[in-house]
Design a protein around this nucleic acid. Structure first.
Lengths: 318, 318
DNA sequence: ATATTTTACGTAAGTACTTACGTATAAATT
DNA sequence: AATTTATACGTAAGTACTTACGTAAAATAT
């Protein structure tokens, strides 16, 4: 056990598990020695049924933080041992109503003194060692409920990953990545128009040579985002093909990319960024508006060549 | 989860288990999303092997508080995945020496940043909720190490059982119980002599009618102990057939019975209790001596009729 | 030296879960 | 009213353990 202690916080889970397992094992032995056919993991089930009189499978699962198949299996065992009775619910025939049988109630009565002692002993142990352990555990539960371990780790991993990301300008070698990413995105949200196909199949000719720019966001050499700036005239550029790879969404990379977009447009001496989008792409719209884009009437000289986007936005640099 | 909280201390084990399971589940997802073929329960194994460089199965089991088959199975998985190398120990061919393979070391390196983050997050969670949780758990561990839950519960159960026990004087209906208990005891320690058989087959004739007494200790109508006082003369009685049923030993019922013996001998106006015993019955001897019996030379008028006991003890009432 | 006990590990079989899926029924939406 | 979605439960298959047992080697006792 020494090593686990050494590991400290990181092995908290393992340590806690060991503790609970040792408690369970002790209880197994207690029941065994008393020659009572009862297993410790039934305890909470019994208590819950005793309290509620009648419960359904899902109710038990929810209250005891178990999966429903686990509950079903335990209930089947208890039913086989004739400790519970189960019937269909009169109002909802999907439900199985569970209650203690006479034998079950008798067993609970027989065990009551033992449970009483277990209770005393648990309190005794806690008083001797850590009287406020339950409070502490409640607090951990609350903190984790508000923001799970998963979420916390994820957050930090993402932050770290973002630090290593970089933008690069398009070159021939990214053709496949650029096209693939945009086709994936387009086909899952809208339709790929002829105009899209033209641009995606030859960006150099269609964008770059016409004074436009394409930027790619790289994470460890993987292309995870793209956007395209087309030159409309000497002051206006059009933003399009703004997409982030599946699996990297939800990391606020949109903000990162949009900031980069504005910086670049500025560097390239454009004064206005305009874009067309579809109202059903709510998250994108929200992002643009949050960053200062405004929905305005279309400029007569700039048309949506795809013919599918009803919203026109623009952003004034400076 | 509400109900489990309601249960308080009694469901501490369940609650703790849920906590650790949720931590584990989160880690499973973290590894899965990073596309790393690693499972959280391997973590402590990896750490231990990293630290010790070379370990045996039992060493791991001991340090991580696992059963050895569990360790064997995990190691087989890790070996199949080529993360560890195992060889026979040169000095002790029973042992299997385990170390990380190159692939294993690489994986550990690859995971180090993630583990670092997990560490940070664990600390963060604890700081937010219960900074001294680890200390508290250590204290619980220590307290349980000194006196296990099992032992504590057992102790209280026994005390409760003893309260309900009672002594009754022998009557015909106890013949089988009396004989069975003594035969079981005799046959497992010594031999059943002819003299024993005579007494055990007809206690009324052999003991009671000769002015002796037999007392039985009952626990919920079950005969769990017996002793016999034979009248030697008007001041001396001989204690024999002092036995406690298997499964009830180690509860200090011997003291209870011996106190009763002395009380009864006193009530019956005897002045001396004598007994023969065999030196190999060390616990019994200790009990007698603790209660004030003394090893003395035999009285010429009192002989050990079984011929097997070399020790003669006596106790002076008053 | 020889016999006995302990240790180190392996394996088989069982158990208590899990995930993944299927099937009714109820509730909500259109 | 008809369709879709959600809920309640069941089952099958897999996994991560457990206990129980076996075997060989080492340590200890005789």
């Amino acid at each position: 056990m020494e090593f686990i202690k050494e590991l400290g916080t990181v092995a908290l889970g393992t340590r806690i598990k060991n503790l609970s397992e040792s408690l369970m094992r002790d209880m197994v032995n207690i029941y065994k020695e008393q020659n009572i056919d009862f297993e410790p993991r039934w305890f909470t089930f019994f208590q819950l049924i005793l309290k509620k009189k009648e419960v359904s499978i899902t109710e038990i699962a929810r209250e005891l933080n178990q999966t429903h198949p686990a509950v079903v299996q335990v209930m089947n065992v208890l039913e086989k041992k004739k400790l519970i009775l189960t019937n269909k619910d009169k109002n909802d025939s999907r439900k199985r109503v569970i209650k203690l049988s006479k034998k079950g109630r008798q067993l609970a009565e027989e065990l009551a003194p033992t449970w009483e002692i277990v209770h005393m002993v648990s309190n005794e142990i806690l008083e001797e060692s850590a009287p406020d352990l339950l409070d502490k555990i409640s607090k951990v539960e609350t903190v984790l409920h508000n923001k799970s371990t998963y979420f916390r780790i994820k957050e930090k991993l993402i932050r770290k990953a973002i630090e290593k990301m970089e933008f690069v300008e398009y070159s021939e070698s990214y053709l496949n990545d650029y096209r693939q990413l945009n086709e994936d995105w387009l086909s899952s949200y809208l339709e790929i128009s002829e105009h899209d196909k033209k641009i995606l199949s030859d960006p150099i000719e269609q964008i770059i040579k016409k004074g436009g720019h394409i930027f790619l966001l790289l994470s460890e050499n993987e292309v995870i985002g793209t956007y395209t700036l087309q030159r409309k005239n000497h002051t206006i550029c059009e933003l399009s093909k703004f997409t982030i790879k599946k699996g990297f969404r939800g990391w606020k990379l949109g903000e990162l990319m949009l900031n980069h977009t504005i910086d670049k447009a500025n560097e390239l001496n454009f004064e206005n960024i305009v874009l067309f989008t579809h109202p059903k792409l709510k998250e994108a719209l929200q992002l643009y508006i949050k960053r200062g884009f405004e929905i305005t009437p279309e400029y007569p000289e700039i048309k949506d060549k795809t013919g599918r986007c009803s919203l026109f936005l623009q952003y004034n640099i400076n």
